[in-house]
């Protein structure tokens, strides 16, 4: 299932991450998944939030560089091998994963995986066919 992700540029220096997160929380934005990829110089903070446009507005107004990208959100069972199963399905069908991150869900027994792939349409179709496509957008944020 396609969802919108916020990507935020963060210079890799002490105290640069906290303001971004606190601005969002003050604005009433709820973060359901988060990952931070970094080098020694900078990082890219990736967020799945409940109010994408609001979050983007809050950050842009604060001078933060933010981009909205489309990624796939997959709800899977939170048990050993749950993530491997999803990754294997994509690999078997020659879909390349650019990056991914996962978090345990609020609902017991469910976990959320965010995947960025080279061919999102194909990936979505394959995942649906394998029983991973029945989650609606608004449900993602409750997982």
């Amino acid at each position: 299932m396609k969802v919108k992700q916020l990507s935020v540029f963060i210079e890799n220096r002490k105290g640069n991450l906290a303001p971004v997160l606190s601005h969002l929380s003050r604005g009433g934005v709820d973060i359901s998944a988060l990952s931070l990829a970094d080098t020694s110089d900078f990082g890219v903070l990736r967020l799945i939030v409940d109010k994408v446009e609001l979050a983007q507005k809050i950050l842009s107004e604060d001078g933060v560089i933010v981009k909205v990208t489309e990624v796939l959100a997959v709800v899977m069972n939170d048990h050993p091998g749950g993530a491997a199963e999803v990754v294997n399905i994509l690999a078997d069908n020659h879909v390349e994963i650019e990056y991914m991150y996962a978090c345990a869900g609020k609902t017991l027994g469910k976990a959320l995986m965010i995947v960025r792939v080279d061919d999102p349409a194909k990936a979505e179709e394959i995942l649906c066919a394998n029983g991973f496509g029945d989650t609606k957008a608004n449900e993602i944020y409750r997982i």
Partner: peptide, 18 residues
């Protein structure tokens, strides 16, 4: 300073800019 035009969602593209 990072700008909208230089920024990309993935580390590799940003490193390529650098």
């Amino acid at each position: 300073e990072m700008s909208e035009t230089l920024f990309a969602d993935d580390i590799r593209s940003i490193e390529a800019v650098e």
